[in-house]
Every structure is written in C-alpha cells, then in structure tokens.
C-alpha cells in the first residue's frame, strides 16, 4: 500500500486512524530516527501484526500518519474561510483557528502543524513534499478568498501580495507558537496584521 494512494475520507477505517494517531505520538515523542516499529507497538499498544500487514516499513507508517494528520488538521484550519463573507473576518477566523491549534497543549501534534507552516529545516525529508503541498493549499485558499472579495476592496489592493503577506504572517505566527509565545500575544499580532486588509476595504 503506497501512502500517496490513500484518500482520507469518512470511509477511512476508524481503527486505522487510531493506529496512525497513536503511532504519530510515539514518533513525535521519541524522534523518527530513533523509533522502530517495535517501539511503536510497545509504546502505543497497536498490534505488531496490524502494522506489519498495513505498512511496508517504519518510513511508510510515518509518512501515512503524517499525511493523515495534515489532511485532518489542514481541513480544520481552512474551514474558517468558508464561514465568513467578509474577508477580514474570514482571515481573522483562520488566523485565530491556527493560533488555537498551534498553542493547544492538549494536542500532541499541534507542533507538527506549526512546523508544516514554519518549514523548519529539521523536518524529516519524508515530510517535505507533504508540507509544501499544505502550504500551497493554504496560500491558494487565502488568494481565492481575497479574489472572491474583490468588490469589497479598493482598486489599489494588490491581491496576490496581500495573500502572500497573510501566508507570511501565518507562518510567522506558527514559528512563534512553536517557540512557546502565549496565545494572547499571538492574537494581538493577528489583529495588527488585519489592520492592513481593513485599510484596503472600501
């Protein structure tokens, strides 16, 4: 089974999702290079046979787990855009949603998402293409939202540049969250960044 062929839709087996979630926790805690399939089984309680039947190698398991994670949380991250017709509120919702996710100490994988956007260069090579795809998706979604709101914006608004500015802000917030900056400070940063979009609104 190749990781690239997996579609993480509602029919994706719950048992597999649980196994991926548990495996990712172990990889995350021990570090990918130092973790074997045996470690994953011992630490997570997922059966060895189940993992061996479904994954060719540790790398295959890790890549699938990461893809599943990014798909799940990437969707959550982008869902806010659809909720608001006002572009400032749509972006505020998305930035707040990200900050909430990045700073969620209950979520062991929150850091992965912030790394995905921050693109720290110690990311495992396996991840690189997946992370790049996620970043492109986020940029394309922001661009699409701003283009859809063109009639609300002044003619002087350079929409592609604005979209790049907000992906830059998002990635800066991701880096700061990964460094442990408190969420209330990050919300203030997000609000400051939104003053730019407000200045371009008719």
């Amino acid at each position: 089974m190749e990781a690239e062929t997996i579609t993480f839709n509602e029919t994706f087996p719950h048992s597999m999702q649980e196994a991926l979630r548990a495996s990712l926790k172990v990889f995350w805690r021990l570090g990918v290079h130092r973790t074997s399939i045996d470690d994953v089984c011992r630490e997570s309680g997922v059966s060895y046979n189940f993992l061996r039947e479904n994954f060719e190698s540790k790398e295959h398991l890790y890549r699938t787990a990461v893809m599943w994670y990014l798909d799940q949380y990437g969707r959550q991250l982008l869902s806010e855009f659809a909720l608001h017709s006002n572009p400032t509120e749509a972006l505020r919702g998305a930035l707040y949603e990200c900050i909430g996710l990045f700073c969620n100490k209950q979520c062991e994988h929150a850091k992965l998402l912030s790394y995905a956007l921050a693109a720290v260069n110690n990311s495992d090579r396996i991840l690189i293409s997946e992370l790049l795809a996620l970043r492109r998706k986020v940029y394309a979604t922001i661009l699409c939202k701003l283009n859809g709101s063109k009639r609300h914006l002044k003619d002087t608004a350079d929409i592609p540049v604005l979209a790049r500015f907000y992906i830059t802000t998002l990635r800066g917030l991701a880096s700061q969250a990964a460094d442990g900056i408190p969420s209330d400070e990050l919300y203030r940063v997000a609000d400051l960044s939104l003053e730019i979009l407000e200045a371009y609104r008719k």
């Binding site: 956007l117 921050a118 693109a119 720290v120 260069n121 790049l132 970043r135 790049r164 992906i167 830059t168 802000t169 998002l170 990635r171 800066g172 917030l173 880096s175 700061q176 900056i181 400070e185 990050l186 203030r188 940063v189 400051l192 960044s193």
Partner: peptide, 20 residues
C-alpha cells in the same frame, strides 16, 4: 510590545517564505 511581536512574526515569516 504587540507591534514588536508583529514585526518578529513578519521577519520569521519572511525567512521561511524565502526558502519557498
């Protein structure tokens, strides 16, 4: 302080954007 954090986020964001 928030303004300084905003520019901190801009600098960090530009650094990661520069790689892409």
């Amino acid at each position: 302080q928030a303004l300084a954090s905003f520019f901190g986020a801009t600098i960090q964001g530009m650094a990661v954007q520069a790689r892409d």
